[in-house]
Design a binder for these strands. Structure first.
Length: 463
RNA sequence: GCCCCCAUCGUCCAGUGGCCUAGGACGCCUCCCUUUCAAGGAGGUAACACGGGUUCGAAUCCCGUUGGGGGUGCCA
């Protein structure tokens, strides 16, 4: 007897972006598939006609590819299986598992309101024998008694009593199949063995199980319902609350290594406590049974910390290469010059998008002077004028190395009775425009003597 | 309302009956290093929601309460 191959899938709908929650779902499916040596399929659930534009789908492919989540075989398009979905629904009608219903949503709402009962369909058309020629939807005939249950891989046994399940719609009035049917049928056809998805889908699982059984499918399928990723309000992450698309984080300068690493930590954690680690190691350690059951808050601070760690782990050359898209649009940008200062930037950036603010003074004709910095280090600093004068004088004759500039500054700082840290402030603002940035003397070396002295003189004139 | 799920530091995880005076990470605070800011090093702060059981023993098992979330669409 051959062992059934483990087969998982990620089934996004073409929304035009990859939601963080979806990405996490894709990741957990993928981690488990790769861990167990199973197959990982990609299926685009594009039954919604107007949302199935190729560009919208491409965005999702790109995001998955960026994260490093790969798939076995070509992507499946659910819309290609429309005929199969229709045939299954017809079979269910013939078998008596489903029936046509003429009730509109208004009809149903009016009746339940009049009856004062709970919302939901009341089974009005169950035995009316509605013909195919009448305008109708197709509903599944849920058994009156009993329950549908399964042993969820992350939550244990979950059970729904049939009397709490209404006769749900299988096919819309316009003839299109509902998600429940298309999804269940495609999973059967692809011989999916494990469905790993968000907890928000937990209540449609009994319906899918019912459809599977009515189809006569006997192969088991295991479900693992992941805890939701929530925001500060403990609510499901939604698009109207901050950035929820993977692409947004990519644009902000998060590394895919960090993104994947952090997402894996939402609802799961390695037993040895080592959180920041390569994805290959995570694959090795990942078990569905170790997934937590409570919602995990998306903590941007922690994501940034993980990202900073990954930035620091990069080889300098690689750091430069990855930084380029974020800095090469600075006017006057010079790659060689950027590479010189790169090691000093690498420990200072949590996200790549903050790089321009740290190094743009090296490329711009004039540094962009930050008002608050200028106020603090120059205007409010009575020592500023003479420090700038001293710097011009000392730097004019200094050898142009970090050590020499350091020594020269130390000398006139001490003469003025100031600590080096205090003395370099107005110089830093004059040259870089800000009070914070990479180490001053190293930056001056990269900037060059002429530009440095010109900026110091210009600042002195403004005092 | 009804259905389903969840409940350990502010946050994310560890803990699966004794090793827990509850551990790690992020954050926050202090100190060291220091050329600003980082990075790095050393400390510190801070939690088993509550009430009943079960047991020699419970963060761990059971029940209840409270709190939170998800669903309740001819969306997915």
């Amino acid at each position: 007897m051959a062992l059934t191959p483990v087969r998982l899938r990620f089934a996004p709908s073409p929304t035009g972006y990859l939601h963080l929650g979806s990405a996490r779902t894709a990741l957990f499916n993928w981690l488990w598939a790769r861990h167990i040596g199973g197959e990982m399929l990609l299926r685009i659930e594009d039954t919604d006609r107007e949302r199935s534009q190729p560009e919208l789908i491409q965005v999702i492919f790109d995001a998955l590819d960026w994260l490093g989540i790969d798939f076995d075989g070509e992507p499946i398009h659910q819309s290609d299986n429309a005929a199969r979905h229709a045939a299954v629904i017809d079979d269910l009608i013939h078998a008596g598992s489903a029936y046509r219903c003429t009730c509109t949503q208004e009809d149903v709402a009016a009746r339940t309101k009049a009856a004062g009962g709970p919302p939901g369909y009341d089974g009005f058309c169950r035995d009316r024998g509605v013909g195919a020629d009448e305008s109708h939807v197709v509903r599944f005939r849920v058994p009156d008694d009993g329950a549908t249950s399964w042993v969820d891989l992350v939550r244990g046994e979950i059970s729904f009593e049939h009397r709490n399940l209404e006769d749900f719609v299988l096919r819309r009035r316009d003839g299109n199949p509902m998600f429940i049917v298309a999804n269940a049928v495609d999973d059967v056809d692809a011989a999916i063995t494990h469905v790993v998805r968000g907890e928000d889908l937990i209540n449609v699982t009994p319906k899918m199980l019912l459809v599977r059984a009515a189809m006569g499918v006997t192969e088991p399928v295991a479900f693992a319902h992941l805890p939701l990723i929530v925001n500060e309000q403990r609510k499901k992450l939604s698009k109207r609350f901050g950035d929820v698309a993977i692409e947004d984080y990519r644009a902000r300068g998060f590394l895919p290594e960090a993104m994947v690493n952090y997402l894996a930590l939402l609802g799961w954690g390695p037993a040895d406590g080592v959180e920041v680690r390569p994805v290959d190691e995570i694959i090795g350690l990942f078990e569905l049974s170790d997934i937590g059951q409570s919602g995990a808050m998306f903590d941007i601070k922690k994501l940034e910390a993980v990202n900073g760690e990954w930035i620091r782990r990069l080889e300098v050359d690689e750091f430069v290469r990855r930084s380029l898209p974020f800095v090469d649009s600075i006017p006057g940008f010079d790659a060689a010059r950027f590479a010189e200062i790169a090691p000093d930037l690498q420990t200072r950036a949590k996200v790549l998008s903050e790089l321009p603010a740290l190094c743009d003074f090296l490329f711009l004709d004039e540094p962009e002077i930050d008002d608050a910095s200028w106020q603090k280090a120059v205007v409010d600093n009575p020592d500023a004028p003479r420090l700038l004068d001293a710097a011009v004088e000392a730097f004019t004759v200094s050898e142009w190395t970090a050590e020499a500039l350091h020594a020269a500054t130390l000398e006139f700082a001490e003469a003025a009775g100031l600590k080096l840290g205090k003395a370099q402030a107005p110089i830093r603002v004059a040259v870089t425009g800000r009070t914070v940035g990479p180490p001053l003397f190293e930056a001056l070396v990269v900037l060059g003597a002429d530009t440095t002295l010109a900026r110091l003189r210009a600042a002195r004139e403004r005092c």
